[in-house]
Amino acid sequence: MQEKLAEIRKNAKEKIGSVIDLQGLNELKVKFLGKKGELTEILRSMGTISAEERPKFGSLVNEVRNEIEEAIKFAEENLKEKELEQKLEKEKIDITLPSTKIKRGSKHPLNRVIEEIEDLFVSMGYDVVSGPELETDEFCFERLNLPYGHPARDMQDSFYITDTLLLRTQTSAVQARVMLANEEKTPIRMICTGKTYRREDDATHSHQFNQVEGLVIDRKEKNVSLADLKGTLEVLVKKLLGENLQLRFRPSYFPFTEPSYEVDVTCFKCGGKGCPLCKKTGWIEVLGAGIVHPNVLKLNGYDPEKYSGFAFGTGLDRLAMFKYAIPDMRLLYTNDIRFLSQFDRKDEA
């Protein structure tokens, strides 16, 4: 009997060890452990053994049963793992096939530049203010020290709707509105961005274009000076066009500021060596700026004896062209989908 038990044990272990699938394993389970299985058979034939040997033999059979159960459990786990592996392998895909396309929209490059400038100035405590595009002569010109008949009005040939109503030629019109609306005459730190219109249309001028305009007014004792203006514009230019750029203030003339300056920046294409973009001068004109003219303060209710400040402005179309290397201004207004959809990602940090 003992030999037989030993043989079952040996036989079971061998067979379990070499089984290849769960079904085979199940068959072995029945064959050895089932109700009609070999171990059950042996137990049934225990009657042939002497009474004193029975308990010993019984525990021996149990031992073998445990061993076989153990082996089956082990084999079962192995086989399950193998089967899962096979299943996963069958699910293998070609990960280099094209993805499901998720379309990104795009923001117009001019608005991208506007947003960038707005964010920059908001971070310095400026308010971004907007105003009407259909503006009165009063706010567009008169309150900015450009009375009727002033020769500088020539620089801004305008689209009039009536004798006194026109499409604003400059965002500066908003300056006057903000100054006038501020009844307590408290300090001002603002920029205005938006569309402006002039009666000209050629390869380098669009009758509709965009400007940004900045105004800082504070009490005289704060000494808002040209140096402050330069520092502020340095921040703007470096953020927009690149670090390491130098600024040059060139005296100029605007009716709303005195002194007035045109601000040149080192040519960012050639680094100042001279190239076609900068017409071999090494400089590119980017901004107009100056100290707010006392007449402008006066005309808008600020006492020039008590307040002073600076103002600056620039065309954004050119800046957008520089920033994104857009060669032709007309591309900005043609709205070709193939152009627009290029501006569909985050700007570099």
Binding site: E118, F121, V122, S123, M124, G125, Y126, D127, V128, S130, P187, R189, V216, D218, K222, V224, L226, A227, D228, K230, G231, T232, L233, E234, V235, L247, R248, F249, P251, Y261
Partner: peptide
């Protein structure tokens, strides 16, 4: 004006705003 050293205006703290 080449010698002007740019600086930022010393002004009161204030929150900026935009649309």
């Amino acid at each position: 004006l080449d010698n002007i050293e740019g600086k930022l205006p010393v002004v009161d703290m204030k929150q900026g705003s935009f649309d």
